[in-house]
Amino acid sequence: MMLGWAGLYGPMALGAIGSIIGCAIAGQAACGALLETETGHGRYIGISAMPSSQAIYGIVVMFALNRTVTPDNAPGLAAIGLLCGLALLFSAAHQGRACAAAINVSKIRPEIFGMSLAPAAIVEGFAVFAFIFALVISAGVPA
């Protein structure tokens, strides 16, 4: 039963933890870039907010899983919720690093700004996979 509750809140909490880590990493890199550049500050701050999407995915998955926790559905909720949450956590934390790298290189060569965001966008893609399939699978968990 307790694992069921953990699975219910897990995607939200783990996604938020990942977003905290990712946004902090990218934000620190953006702050450094602000010192070194004269223009383009807005986009550095914009990139540093990219890892916040995982927390939003976590909230949506939490609502999709939200139901009365019973001994029948607790294992399903735990498996989907915790695994999806872990995927969101890791993707957000590592997306933060990818964003920091993008900020670092686009500071040197602003013309590659778009291209430098590709790694962060790919990481986002995997977070979207985890999110979508958690929604699909959650339909099969007994109410």
Partner: peptide, 14 residues
């Protein structure tokens, strides 16, 4: 660890 992100992006390209 965390300060390296700010520091490295604040250094100009050599």
């Amino acid at each position: 660890m965390s300060q390296y992100y700010t520091l490295l992006t604040s250094l100009p390209h050599l």
